[in-house]
């Protein structure tokens, strides 16, 4: 706290992105729930229906952005929660990289699945 303040670490970027992704996610998450529980009943979902939706470029792009922003928002939120609990030093670095790897894997796998859902592949 009182010891050393470096002028090169500006930590406001993550805070800002957390808010910006929040704005996007509020809309998309609500849309996602409406579409897949009210418009299309969850129990009646089939791959054919999924493919029909995912093959529209706009829908595909929205869902993919949904994946990326949700991953950032969620993982960054977890990271912040841990810092708030006083996580620091080596542990903090370890947790950070575990979270980064997990996010990359999630986005990669999510992208793979999303492509499989289209009729492109």
């Amino acid at each position: 706290m009182a010891e050393h303040y470096s002028s090169f670490e500006r930590k406001g970027t993550r805070w800002l992105f957390q808010r910006l992704t929040a704005v996007f996610l509020i809309g998309v998450l609500a849309f996602h729930f409406m579409l897949l529980h009210f418009v299309n009943h969850a129990a009646e979902i089939t791959l054919a229906g999924t493919t029909a939706r995912m093959s529209q470029f706009g829908y595909f792009a929205t869902m993919w952005l949904f994946l990326v922003t949700a991953t950032f928002h969620g993982v960054n939120g977890v990271y912040n929660a841990l810092i708030n609990q006083g996580l620091k030093g080596t542990q903090k670095q370890a947790v950070k990289w575990v979270l980064v790897v997990a996010s990359v894997l999630l986005v990669a796998q999510g992208t793979r699945v999303a492509l499989a859902m289209t009729n492109l592949v």
């Binding site: 470096s6 930590k11 406001g12 708030n84």
Partner: peptide, 14 residues
């Protein structure tokens, strides 16, 4: 501002 915008500055406020 540089002092308060540290990682353990204003951003920790929930």
């Amino acid at each position: 501002l540089r002092i308060v915008e540290q990682e353990h500055g204003v951003w920790r406020c929930q």
